[in-house]
Simulated assay, not measured.
Amino acid sequence: MAEVRLRVNGADRRLDIPPQVSLLDALREHLGLPGTKKGCDQGACGACTVLADGERINACLALAVQYADREITTIEGVDHPLQEAFVRHDGFQCGYCTSGQICSAIGMLAEHKDGMPSAVSEDQPAEGEELTDEEIRERMSGNICRCGAYNGVVEAVAEVVR
């Protein structure tokens, strides 16, 4: 067993867990935070996306011990205009991917603000450069929606950006 201290949604939490427990399982099974979803459990679908010190990560690929003493934000700790925008623009259907989509979008907006390029932009975005729909789609491509609510997701992110 390993003692792991996590800061989750602003609260310090202490766990005694085997060192091989993923951050996803620590959040869901040990801390009772079911908002982060287990989809593929292989890092391909994005349903488990959370923020670690503001950066989006796939919690299924991360060991909880790797994130000791870091700030983890799950959907339960999010209070962001994107949430209401997702509702207004039908950015979800069944809702399974929504928590990962929202956490990913928050991280993506921070990446863009920090000048991180994407496959669409190729170069660092210019200061204040607006995200196009194509850019939003590319930057959100790590999050799969089996219901196909992608247009609503893009519209929600675009509304918040613009």
Rank of each mutant, 00 (worst) to 15 (best):
residue 82 L to T: 05
residue 82 L to N: 03
residue 82 L to I: 09
residue 83 Q to R: 10
residue 83 Q to C: 07
residue 83 Q to M: 13
residue 83 Q to F: 03
residue 83 Q to G: 10
residue 83 Q to V: 11
residue 84 E to Q: 14
residue 84 E to K: 14
residue 84 E to H: 13
residue 84 E to I: 13
residue 84 E to C: 12
residue 84 E to S: 06
residue 85 A to T: 08
residue 85 A to M: 03
residue 85 A to K: 01
residue 85 A to E: 01
residue 86 F to P: 03
residue 86 F to T: 07
residue 86 F to S: 09
residue 86 F to D: 02
residue 87 V to G: 07
residue 87 V to Y: 13
residue 87 V to R: 10
residue 87 V to E: 05
residue 88 R to E: 15
residue 88 R to Y: 05
residue 88 R to L: 14
residue 88 R to G: 03
residue 88 R to C: 07
residue 88 R to M: 09
residue 88 R to Q: 14
residue 89 H to R: 13
residue 89 H to Y: 14
residue 89 H to N: 15
residue 90 D to C: 12
residue 90 D to A: 15
residue 90 D to I: 14
residue 90 D to H: 15
residue 90 D to K: 14
residue 90 D to V: 13
residue 91 G to C: 03
residue 91 G to S: 11
residue 91 G to I: 09
residue 91 G to M: 08
residue 91 G to D: 04
residue 92 F to D: 10
residue 92 F to I: 11
residue 92 F to A: 14
residue 92 F to L: 14
residue 92 F to T: 08
residue 92 F to R: 00
residue 93 Q to V: 07
residue 93 Q to L: 02
residue 93 Q to M: 06
residue 93 Q to C: 09
residue 94 C to R: 12
residue 94 C to Q: 05
residue 94 C to Y: 10
residue 94 C to S: 08
residue 94 C to M: 10
residue 95 G to S: 10
residue 95 G to Y: 11
residue 96 Y to P: 06
residue 96 Y to W: 09
residue 96 Y to M: 12
residue 96 Y to N: 06
residue 97 C to N: 11
residue 97 C to I: 02
residue 97 C to E: 09
residue 97 C to W: 04
residue 97 C to K: 06
residue 98 T to L: 05
residue 98 T to H: 04
residue 98 T to I: 08
residue 98 T to F: 11
residue 98 T to A: 09
residue 98 T to G: 09
residue 99 S to Y: 06
residue 99 S to F: 06
residue 99 S to I: 10
residue 100 G to H: 05
residue 100 G to A: 09
residue 100 G to C: 12
residue 100 G to N: 01
residue 100 G to M: 09
residue 101 Q to R: 05
residue 101 Q to T: 12
residue 102 I to K: 08
residue 102 I to L: 13
residue 102 I to S: 04
residue 102 I to M: 08
residue 102 I to T: 04
residue 102 I to P: 01
residue 103 C to S: 10
residue 104 S to K: 04
residue 104 S to T: 15
residue 105 A to N: 00
residue 105 A to Y: 00
residue 105 A to L: 04
residue 106 I to S: 06
residue 106 I to V: 08
residue 106 I to L: 08
residue 106 I to K: 00
residue 106 I to W: 02
residue 107 G to W: 08
residue 107 G to K: 09
residue 107 G to M: 06
residue 108 M to E: 02
residue 108 M to C: 06
residue 108 M to L: 15
residue 109 L to H: 02
residue 109 L to N: 05
residue 109 L to K: 00
residue 110 A to M: 04
residue 110 A to W: 09
residue 110 A to R: 13
residue 110 A to Y: 10
residue 110 A to G: 11
residue 111 E to D: 15
residue 111 E to V: 07
residue 111 E to T: 00
residue 111 E to G: 07
residue 111 E to A: 01
residue 112 H to G: 02
residue 112 H to Q: 00
residue 113 K to D: 05
residue 113 K to S: 13
residue 113 K to P: 02
residue 113 K to F: 01
residue 114 D to H: 12
residue 114 D to A: 15
residue 114 D to L: 12
residue 114 D to P: 03
residue 114 D to F: 06
residue 114 D to K: 11
residue 115 G to L: 01
residue 115 G to K: 03
residue 115 G to W: 02
residue 115 G to C: 05
residue 116 M to F: 07
residue 116 M to K: 14
residue 116 M to T: 13
residue 117 P to V: 07
residue 117 P to Q: 01
residue 117 P to I: 06
residue 117 P to A: 13
residue 118 S to D: 10
residue 119 A to S: 07
residue 119 A to M: 15
residue 119 A to V: 14
residue 120 V to I: 03
residue 120 V to R: 06
residue 120 V to Y: 08
residue 120 V to D: 04
residue 120 V to M: 13
